[in-house]
């Protein structure tokens, strides 16, 4: 990729589902991925959707268009993975942006990984923002648990899966949503699905699989394992028992502070490089 050549970003868009009404909508994480792509300077954004267009999902797809893109490429392949691979290859993208998990179906979060494997590209999940695009590499910010962030450098081309902590997607405007085009894509290189490829396809064995509305998970009971009646009674009747912690009484404030700092350093929550 030469410097003046724009980065080409394929954004994978799926149909989401409202968690309460179960109505089709734009998928939250995919919309965040599109938002990230639209924020990039000098990048060509290529939105892709694999599937058929029907009255059930048109409104959802159009709400992506309402975010300010002129068209979505529709790939009418039955095998989602194969369709995505071909779509990404044909679009000559060097970055694929997608959500981490789909809101319908299995929602296993495996698709970005499978796609990366098929393309032979590295994958980074938990993306919150793209800091810089260089020649052949991208500097990213990745979300860690507990609101922490980490900086990564990944060689391009790469698949990037967006974290739910990424910036919220802009609202969808009605006018552009109606004007935008959903163009079915004729892919030159779509091959017949070979036997080896079918193995990936979950549809093959999903006849054994049953979907049900999510059950509430049972609350874990506190199991009291005591060998004698005395222990069982104590466990049932006792309130907060001393947990065997260290109690320091009558020490000077300085010694107390030292003890605290020692524990904080042991637990590595105290960063001494920070500002004074």
């Amino acid at each position: 990729m030469s410097l003046n050549q724009a980065t080409r970003v394929a954004v994978l868009l799926s149909i989401g589902q409202h968690p309460v009404t179960a109505r089709a909508r734009r998928a939250d994480q995919d919309a965040r991925a599109l938002e990230l792509a639209l924020q990039l300077n000098h990048a060509d954004v290529i939105p892709l959707h694999v599937g058929q267009l029907n009255e059930h999902n048109e409104a959802a797809l159009r709400s992506y268009l309402g975010m300010g893109i002129s068209q979505i490429k529709l790939i009418g392949n039955s095998d989602i993975l194969l369709g995505l691979e071909q779509g990404v290859r044909e679009s000559q993208a060097n970055i694929v942006l997608c959500g981490s998990r789909a809101e319908t179906g299995e929602g296993s979060g495996l698709v970005p990984y499978l796609l990366a494997k098929k393309l032979g590209w590295p994958i980074v999940s938990g993306l919150v923002s793209i800091e810089k695009l260089d020649q052949g590499s991208a500097t990213l910010l990745q979300a860690l648990p507990r609101g922490q962030r980490r900086k990564l450098k990944v060689s391009l081309p790469a698949v990037l899966a967006v974290d739910p902590a990424a910036a919220v997607a802009r609202q969808s405007a009605f006018g552009p949503a109606q004007r935008g085009a959903i163009t079915p894509q004729k892919l030159s290189s779509i091959e017949a699905v070979s036997g080896a490829e079918v193995k990936h396809n979950s549809a093959l064995h999903s006849f054994l699989w049953q979907f049900q509305p999510a059950k509430k998970r049972p609350k874990r009971l506190k199991i009291i394992k005591a060998t004698s009646a005395r222990d069982r009674f104590k466990a049932a009747a006792a309130k907060a028992d001393a947990s065997g912690g260290k109690v320091l009484q009558g020490v000077s404030a300085d010694d107390a502070a030292n003890e605290i700092i020692k524990l904080l350093l042991e637990e590595s929550v105290l960063n001494l490089d920070g500002h004074l």
Binding site: S243, G245, A253, D254, A257, N258, I260
Partner: peptide, 22 residues
């Protein structure tokens, strides 16, 4: 009783010492 490390003393003093030491 719940704490793993309990320091018995005045909060203002101990926090000031922690600030100074850190």
């Amino acid at each position: 009783k719940r704490a793993d490390l309990a320091l018995i003393g005045d909060s203002t003093e101990i926090l000031a010492a922690v600030r100074r030491k850190v």
